[in-house]
Design a protein around this nucleic acid. Structure first.
Length: 595
DNA sequence: CCCCCCCC
């Protein structure tokens, strides 16, 4: 027979401390239906009472998803906090489980223990506060806001803290005690609604996590004082619904600092506020994940690329990027893109260990890659056991192991594995006919059609569709199904490329079109299709016109099944600062000696 | 009040 701590729930719900009660889980319910922001409400029993006002700290969500806390299992609650929430017009105590051990699996227990009854009636009447009084102003309830076990002495003794998981827009009198686990850089914005600057940080305590953003004045006021990894008391900030599109923390809300907000450093946080928790997955698992998934990895920097300067195709903004190749004990490598200052500063050939929290999975050319976001935490050579383990592995074995890459990068597209192909091979393999294919060829510019090289395009971001002049002076975009008062000129060049096997018309847009218009004209003259002998001779004598072209081919079903081939890159490139060693490698591979 | 997170 399994014994539960009978009577524990009545005591807990009435503010009486119970040390490590043994309870049975009778069920759970997901409170949020978003993928990232799940919170779980549990139905628990002490054998005498059942209670559904029980929440699991979000850090413990995996105990639900990994089927540890299954129906009928028996658990020991090592640590909990009581939070007071509004339930209709009543105040209701909620037990937030902060630390729990599963003692007997549900399948072994197999049934509900005892005949517990619903404790609602009791709990409600006793825990309802007098109207108009918030929980924090009632002395006997203040103590219930403090976690019940392992309470640390606060440096400011009268600060009563609320667990992050209990925050909501419906309360404003709270103080949280939380650790800053990440802090973005200060960013400025400017749009039709105004301009300003901001930064955001991610906060955790033992109950959960939340994003906090500071705008304008608050940005200046708080940026320098807040340090990653330190603990602060934060109060008088505003809660609002989290926008899940941009915030993947496990919380339905996010926090905004205001002029009234108070942030006080906590110098003696002890161990009651956890540090950043990683949930590492092996690099080999990334292959099965979806693009845009957010993951944690622990890996060795196998190699570190040069800093690249590029211009965003969408925004026209200058960008700094650095790709590093990560490897772990799965002997699989993945490319990680770093951006901005981090890209600039991360120039390491000494194979450091990286512990990365919250990198985003990207997909390119059929491969997977990783990219950092502003919320990504990157620890270099962290002093954690797993880091020492992977360091040992790399130093002894890993550095010599053969690896396989999940990423198809620009760099490894032109490596010695032979991905440089001929037009004949592209056509023989029907590239582009079943989905998108990207391939590289060494070719010459055979002919350039410069007529109509400027067109009026849709002014909306990311849409390059040609607009139709309307009689009313508006411009219609068929793709957006919308009329605009304006348009954007875009460059479009149709060029005929040829190698010694075949030729191909490709379309070029903006950057590439510009390069081509600048770089070369049709000095070789137009050749007839398949005039290979004549062409081969000219090709051989005209190395100054040969380039590596990156072609994107795709069958466009809406356009009478025409294979659309677009030039999306030209190497060697005078215009973009690709790695010197990469250019050297391409020169070597392609036999180009005068780029 | 941001909401960009990029590139091939």
């Amino acid at each position: 027979m399994y014994s539960l701590t009978e009577g524990a729930l009545d005591k807990i719900m009435n503010g009486i401390e119970v040390d490590k009660p043994i309870l049975q889980i009778l069920g759970h319910k997901k409170l949020s239906n978003s993928n990232s922001g799940d919170r779980y409400r549990l139905l628990v029993s002490d054998g005498k009472r059942v209670n559904s006002f029980t929440m699991l700290a979000t850090q413990l969500n995996s105990m639900i998803t990994d089927n540890v806390l299954t129906e009928f299992c028996i658990c020991q609650i090592n640590k909990y906090a009581i939070s007071i929430v509004n339930n209709g017009d009543k105040k209701k105590r909620v037990m937030v489980i902060l630390n729990i051990d599963m003692k007997v699996p549900g399948e072994q227990v197999g049934q509900k223990i005892g005949n517990p009854t619903n404790a609602e009636a009791d709990g409600d009447s006793k825990s309802t506060t007098q109207p108009g009084q918030s929980a924090q102003t009632v002395p006997q309830q203040q103590s219930t806001l403090i976690p019940k076990h392992n309470v640390q002495q606060a440096s400011i003794s009268d600060i009563i803290t609320t667990p992050i998981v209990a925050l909501s827009p419906y309360h404003n009198r709270w103080v949280i005690k939380a650790r800053v686990v990440s802090k973005s850089s200060i960013r400025t914005w400017s749009n039709s609604r105004g301009e300003g600057k901001l930064f955001s940080m991610d906060l955790i305590d033992e109950s959960g996590e939340i994003r906090c953003t500071a705008f304008r004045d608050q940005c200046d006021k708080f940026y320098d004082m807040l340090e990653v990894d330190k603990v602060y008391y934060i109060s008088k900030a505003i809660l609002k619904s989290a926008n899940k599109q941009f915030n993947n923390l496990k919380n339905d809300y996010e926090m905004t600092l205001t002029g009234d907000s108070e942030i006080i450093p906590c110098h003696d946080a002890g161990n009651d506020i956890p540090s950043l928790q990683f949930d590492f997955i092996p690099i080999s698992d990334i292959e099965q994940k979806q693009a845009n998934d957010i993951i944690d990895v622990l890996a060795i920097v196998k190699s570190c690329g040069d800093l690249q300067m590029l211009v965003s195709r969408n925004t026209g903004r200058d960008m700094k990027k650095r790709n590093v190749i990560l490897v772990d004990e799965s002997n699989i490598t993945v490319s990680l893109s770093l951006w901005g200052t981090q890209a600039e500063e991360f120039n390491r050939s000494d194979n450091p260990v990286l512990a990365i929290k919250g990198a985003r999975i990207g997909e390119f050319n059929g491969g997977k890659n990783l990219s950092t976001l502003s919320s990504t935490v990157m620890q270099i050579d962290p002093d954690i056991p797993a880091a020492h383990k992977i360091r040992g592995w790399f130093n002894t074995l890993g550095h010599n192991e053969e690896t396989k890459s999940l990423s198809r990068t620009f760099e490894n597209m032109t490596d010695s594995t032979g991905s440089l192909i001929t037009f004949a091979e592209a056509k023989a393999n029907n590239l582009g006919e079943k989905g998108v294919d990207v391939y590289t060829v060494k070719a010459v510019i055979n002919f350039l059609r410069s007529e109509n090289s400027l067109y009026k395009s849709c002014p909306s971001e990311n849409c390059k569709k040609k607009v139709i002049d309307q009689a009313n002076g508006m411009f219609r975009c068929e793709k957006c199904n919308k009329e605009y008062p304006n348009f954007m000129y875009r460059l479009l060049g149709n060029i005929s490329l040829a190698d010694w096997t075949d030729n191909l018309w490709v379309t070029t847009f903006n950057d590439e079109a510009e390069k081509i218009l600048d770089a070369t004209a049709a000095e070789l003259g137009e050749l007839k299709d398949n005039d290979n002998d004549v062409f081969l001779e000219k090709f051989n004598n005209a190395t100054f016109k040969s380039f590596i072209f990156k072609i994107r081919a795709k069958m466009e079903t809406f356009n009478e099944n025409r294979l659309r081939t677009t030039c999306i890159g030209i190497i060697p490139i005078d215009y973009r600062a690709y790695n010197k060693h990469l250019i050297a490698k391409i020169k070597d591979l392609a036999g180009i000696d005068n780029v």
